[in-house]
Design a protein around this nucleic acid. Structure first.
Lengths: 132, 132
DNA sequence: CTTGACCTTCCAGTAACGGGAAGCCCTATC
DNA sequence: GATAGGGCTTCCCGTTACTGGAAGGTCAAG
């Protein structure tokens, strides 16, 4: 398969697939004309990466996951640990966003949002509301 | 004030403050020795930016907020609209994270996490679970 | 006079690609 | 055979919002 085929099959842009080759995630062979030649195994790997990325794993985490995936002796505990680490990262981000959201929603709610210049949002940014 | 003073007062690293000057967010004067000279107004602006950044506004959104902040004729509706746009961005990110979290948590829960190689997480990444 | 803390500029790197240029390859059509 | 098109190649720059580090000027204290 050429890059266009795996691109369509995996849903990944060709640019992204070339990038993954650059950083050593996949290593397609080349045909005589210099075109990358992909096998089903390559496609499988790319789909794996696409799904892991879709779950928010970083490229380096994907690299580790792929290595574990290809290691028939791996312990599932290793995979689980990585997944749990990532789960914790997600939770941390969600908590951070929730904090922002709370504060921002408060400010928005206080703002009349009319033609007048008086704006509690800007006031809140200029001097944070102290709950004391 | 020198950059170290505003850095400490605003909580922003000196590097970041220089960067903000680079991109035109602030424009301190220079003293004879070439050092940046900051006023209370500069510090005020930096603190404003720091808080807006803390709420997740992008640099460009901060630039707009600053412009609105310094425009005595602005309508609070403009500020509110920007804040609501950002609120929607936050909500979108939270929803995306929640989706990831759900799927990942499901996989993690199915994984024994022991010394054996059998791992539902890797299986799930290799071929997504279809709910059909 | 030297030491050390501060300040300056500039260059490079981060994550994970995306855009676009310049140019080769292959097939189809006229 | 010439050409048009689409796909492929490499290469380099741009993105966001900084951070790290090198090389060197400035200033106050001992």
């Amino acid at each position: 398969m050429n890059i266009g085929d795996v691109s369509e099959a995996s849903g990944l842009p060709a640019k992204t697939i070339r990038y993954y080759e650059d950083i050593g995630l996949i290593t397609p062979l080349r045909s005589d004309n210099g075109y990358r030649q992909f096998t089903q195994a390559h496609l499988h790997k790319l789909a794996f990466i696409a799904r892991a990325r879709g779950l928010g794993f970083s490229i380096e985490q994907c690299r580790t996951l792929l290595a574990l995936y290809e290691d028939r002796e791996r312990a599932s505990a290793d995979v689980k640990a990585l997944a749990e680490t990532h789960l914790a990262e997600i939770d941390a981000k969600m908590a951070e966003l929730a904090d922002m959201r709370r504060t921002l929603a408060d400010l928005v709610q206080c703002c009349a949002g009319d033609h007048r210049p008086d704006c509690p949002i800007l006031k809140g940014l200029a001097a944070p509301v102290t709950g004391d």
